[in-house]
Structure formats: C-alpha cells, structure tokens
C-alpha cells in the first residue's frame, strides 16, 4: 500500500530515527513528523503515533465510557492544578465534554475529555521540566 511505502522511505531517509535513544523520543519524533495514525518501527517492533488519550477515546461511544474518561480527565487536571501549572483552556474543555454528554454526543465528549486529559498530562510534564531547567534562561 501507498502508506507502507512512504513509511519505508521515511525510515530509509532518516538515519536519526535509528539513533533515537528511547521509545518516548522515537514516538515524539514520529508524531512530530507524521502526525497521528502513523506507524513506525522501533527496535524491531511496530508502533503507532497516537497519544494514550486518543486511544482511550477509541472505545464504544456510550454514556458510561464518556463519563469514565471525563472523570479521569478531571482527576488529571486536578493533579496539574495542584502543581500550579493548570492550563487556561482545560477547564472549558472539561465543561464542553460534560455538555456533550448531556446532549448525548458521546463521541464528541470522548474526544474532548481525551484532549483535556492530554493537556493535563503535558502540563505535569512541563512542571517537572521547569523544576530542572528554569535556570537556563537567567542572564549571568
């Protein structure tokens, strides 16, 4: 298939991929270059470039599933808020997700909850990164 060919070509042309030290790095670099729903190889295995939250949204679009993912997203956002690194739009996305549940649009709710949960997770990462690296931009 066309898709497979392009992946093969990309792998052949990008020696940097082979040197990617960790799965996380390989994942991120592939997501960055190719977006979601892309398949890449890493140490002999095949992996996709979807965020864990995007996979969590690929369940049957039911009220229970949507409510479940929304609850997880809220918990994650509470975690990042505690660290003082909550993002501005996340609260609104969570509200929109709830609204979608109330209106019976469970797939929309799942997608929004996934995005909010992702934002919270990356905010937590950002906090930990900042603790280690904030000094890098201080003039000496």
């Amino acid at each position: 298939m066309k898709k497979g060919l392009i992946i093969a070509a990309a792998l052949a042309m990008a020696p940097t991929l082979a040197t990617a030290a960790s799965f996380q790095e390989a994942f991120e670099s592939n997501r960055a270059m190719h977006g979601n729903d892309h398949v890449f190889e890493w140490k002999g295995g095949k992996y996709h470039t979807n965020h864990e939250e995007e996979m969590e949204a690929r369940v049957k679009a039911t009220k229970a599933n949507a409510a479940d993912l929304l609850a997880k997203a809220k918990a994650k956002n509470a975690e990042v808020a505690k660290l003082g690194f909550e993002w501005k739009l996340t609260g609104g996305i969570l509200k929109d997700a709830q609204k979608a549940i109330d209106e019976g649009d469970y797939q929309k709710a799942l997608n929004l909850a996934a995005q909010a949960k992702y934002h919270a997770r990356i905010g937590i990462q950002q906090y930990h990164y900042a603790q280690k690296n904030w000094h890098l931009s201080v003039p000496e």
Partner: peptide, 26 residues
Amino acid sequence: SKLRAQVWDASKNNPLTIMPPLGKHW
C-alpha cells in the same frame, strides 16, 4: 517532515525558544 516537526515542537531543538509547541501542546 522536518519542517512539520519544527512546527509541532520547536522547543525540541531550542528549549528556550519563545515559539509555542503547537503540536505537542495540542
């Protein structure tokens, strides 16, 4: 695809950059 990666997360190549990670931060 290298350009795409730069748009997706410019802080990968320059951690101090003012450019927001447009993809990584969704």
